[in-house]
Amino acid sequence: MSMSEDLALIFDVQGYSVHDGPGLRTTIFFSGCPLSCLWCSNPEGMLFKKRIMYNALHCKLCLKCNERCILLEKNCKDCQLLSCVEACPHQALRVCGKHYSINDLMRIFRRDRPFWGAEGGVTFSGGEPLLQEKFLHQILTECNKTHIHTAIETSAYMENCDDFLDIMEHVDFAFIDVKAMNEEKHRKLTSVSNKIILRNIRDLARCQKEKIRSEKLVLRYPVIPGMNDDDQNVEALIDFMQETELKVINILPFHSMGSSKYDLLNLNYEFKDLLFPSIEERAGQMANIAEKFAAKKIQCFIGSETLF
């Protein structure tokens, strides 16, 4: 077995994921994402570098971190030396992001495999797994070789469509997010155009039709109140799915569970002071949207009510 010593930067490895694909799964969260969605629930994975999380509740202001700091607070945000984290006696500082080799991940997969059940496997998520394309390709190949079921959660944002399809050939199951159909709006919400994304989905859907791989492709639509929950967007999405003959969508109600992470990263959470409709109202809205999909014979799952 020849394995490259290439490393991937990964900010979390989670066992017992129950909503990220069939069966029980181990989910790998890659650092770095070309998009920056305003509502991102994994902000620690937005940048392709190690991030320091600072928990003020644990901090006793002993300033041990300062004593050990080499940069002396210059360019603190870009620092990858992280000597302050090691110095903290209270676990108030934590690093998100660690390098893993193919071997490291395979060791984890072998450890977890007995617990996945017949249908489970590995899900690659992030951040954006496609950003670390070469490594992703290698680990997927390795999984295929060892008969591990693979899934991906991705934005499908990848310039070269052939490369994208090449990767997806190794994937057994894919979730792809469509955050907005209108290009301008998409740019506003995520900082990038949706052209590449929609093109890639189209091509992948075509391949699916021709039964190459990725026979299971589910779109995901995070419904953000006041941002992309307008009828126009829903209709455009339905049209797009009819055009591409995609049959399943998973709509995700907005949650703010990632908000505390923004504090830990010393980032500003745009949604902090926004007033949202109540849980009940949102549930009603989700049901309405689901109905619209259903009317066009598109199977629609809400939240964690997935097809598994």
């Binding site: 029980l24 617990f115 964690s304």
Partner: peptide, 23 residues
């Protein structure tokens, strides 16, 4: 309770139990 919600949650919990017993 959310981690094992629904029918699929039940099946997944059973898989977890099975895995541990088999080990």
């Amino acid at each position: 309770p959310m981690a094992i919600a629904g029918n699929s949650g039940s099946k997944k919990l059973l898989e977890l139990i099975r895995g541990y017993m088999r080990r």
